[in-house]
Design a protein around this nucleic acid. Structure first.
Lengths: 247, 247
DNA sequence: GCCTACAAACTTGTATACAAGCTAAAAAGC
DNA sequence: GCTTTTTAGCTTGTATACAAGTTTGTAGGC
């Protein structure tokens, strides 16, 4: 594949995983072309690839948008993740010690990020746990699938998650790793299933995805100097929005 | 998505699933464009989408080719399928009666195709069992994933499978459905894992994918009137090759 | 003052032309 | 006769021009 195209794809996907791009964000072809210093053709390639991966969508002659999953799609994404990640733990016969060490270190980083209050890397690390798990216990193909699904669920969380329970999630991860260390993969699998179900249960899927989310994004507090925002933001998280900085 | 592009994508993917396109088949942009009555631009779109789905690959300025998975990639594909399909059965709490009925009917069709010696639909049905399962017990997202993976494993079987054990596979399917009927999903999950592992074990992954496969394809017996082919084909299956008929 | 109709600007959709590179066949040299 | 070099043809890679449609801003009518 063309390296330039792959770069664009990767940049957008990792920005989504890090929570730096909100669902519904418009991704103009020309803007991206200028930003990456390539022609529209390349950008279109990357976009179509990302569309296949379920991360962006095109609205005819209006532009490309980061997907805003419906409630139904949200359920599907979580269901799929539960199936795969439970299956992964259930299928693996034994966890090698080096994998276990890496996972424990990762969980430690999660806790550190939570305690230091680093919101940006916190969300990123919580998602990365699952990706690393797939990478360590599965294979590249599985990792790719989990990565795309995690991107989806990250976007879903931005749309439907009233309150982020980062601490609880990290605790769950800890428990899962503990079960793996005790070589009780069946328990680990069950905990993983419960963990994902819990995150899903924490969503408010009755609330329609906010059609004003994009607008709120632009008017988010961080763009002002004052710290008393006049624009209320019900439950969407503030984003650093380092993407598409020039305009 | 553009309907024309989707058509091309779907046509190629389903042809692969049906075993009508062999791994390594060259898919020229212009030929496909003529065949579908569209411009190369559209064909390229479809190809790039299929590339992200892991079904075709582009060789720079040489053309698009249906993937010929390496031994390593073959292992990854089977591992991934095992993880997901075991996870699916393990996660589902109960199988609704109408799903059970549909699956039983499907298995009956498998047996009928095997007994009647219909090789073409036989292979197609055996793969479809897993796709239908994902569709019935999972969701659209999961079905799409399984479909792409099944396309991969179908191609792998064409490359590495010395002898097809269709009857055995169908028996396995029957046992899995029986376990589901007995509401023993844990057993069903275990049987599924063993079934996929068995298919994988039946492969000869030490044998390099035959570099002459493409050539044999062109000289395959079906293109001659006589039924004593002068070109030996070690273990690749004969294909009807209804695809790309005009030239 | 408000609503509607029109126009201008902007964005993607699509085809096409040409560039770049690969393959294979023909020609030249030994 | 065999090897090497050149050349011609074919296929993808990329940019660009223009078509088609959407949005937004503006002017006109009520």
């Amino acid at each position: 594949m063309n390296p330039a195209t792959a770069n664009i794809e990767e940049a957008i996907l990792s920005a989504i995983l890090a929570g730096r791009i909100a669902p519904g964000t418009r991704l103009g072809e020309q803007k991206l072309a200028d930003l990456f210093g390539v022609s529209r053709t390349r950008v279109r390639e990357a976009m179509m690839r990302l569309e296949t991966r379920g991360v962006v969508q095109v609205s005819a002659r209006r532009g490309w948008y980061v997907v805003e999953p419906s409630a139904e799609e949200a359920r599907e994404a979580f269901h799929t993740r539960r199936v795969i990640e439970v299956g992964l733990l259930q299928t693996v016969p034994h966890v090698p010690p080096n994998v276990l060490a890496a996972l424990k270190e990762h969980v430690a980083m999660e806790r550190a990020a939570i305690e230091s209050g680093d919101i940006g890397s916190r969300a990123c690390l919580l998602g990365d746990f699952h990706i690393h798990l797939a990478d360590a216990l599965g294979n590249r193909l599985l990792t790719e699938i989990i990565r795309d699904l995690t991107a989806r669920t990250t976007l879903i969380s931005m749309l439907y998650q009233p309150t982020e329970k980062a601490e609880e999630s990290s605790h769950d991860h800890e428990d899962i790793v503990a079960a793996m260390e005790a070589d009780d993969l069946t328990l680990a699998a069950r905990l993983m299933g419960e963990h994902i179900a819990k995150v899903e249960a924490g969503l408010d899927l009755t609330a329609k995805p906010d059609p004003l989310a994009g607008l709120r994004e632009l008017l988010s507090p961080s763009t002002f100097t004052g710290n008393t925002p006049s624009v209320p933001h019900s439950h969407t998280h503030p984003h650093s929005h380092s993407f598409g900085k020039e305009d």
